[in-house]
Amino acid sequence: MNSLAELPLWASILVSIFLLLGASLALIGSFGLSRLNSFYKRVHAPTLGTTFGAFCILAGSITYFSVSQSRLVLHEVLIGVFLSLTTPITLMLLVRAALYRDRQKGSQDVPNLDLPD
């Protein structure tokens, strides 16, 4: 399992910072998800992990593979692009579904959405 390449010190410090920062952000996001007290607040928490948290971890991966293979390894960028394009779609659909269900239950403190039938 342990086949980590020996990197120059600056590179391993950089990769470590990226990984720890990203993982902490993902953890804080998921912690918020389990802690916040209403659905509409909870929906904000995971975006910590899907935006800057994911970018940090992907940047760490890019740095590690680029330095250890001494060529530019960039394919992690694709995951980043994909994530930032899909998160708005999933969250928007989820919030709209929640709004719709709340309206159906007769809750008055959510705005009315004119959904096509």
Binding site: L4, L9, S16, L19, L20, A26, L27
Partner: peptide, 21 residues
Amino acid sequence: MSASLLNAAVIAAQILLVLAM
């Protein structure tokens, strides 16, 4: 030296991510 630092950081990050999961 730098590999053990990196190893520790990766394991720590993995623990944090499993906690998040």
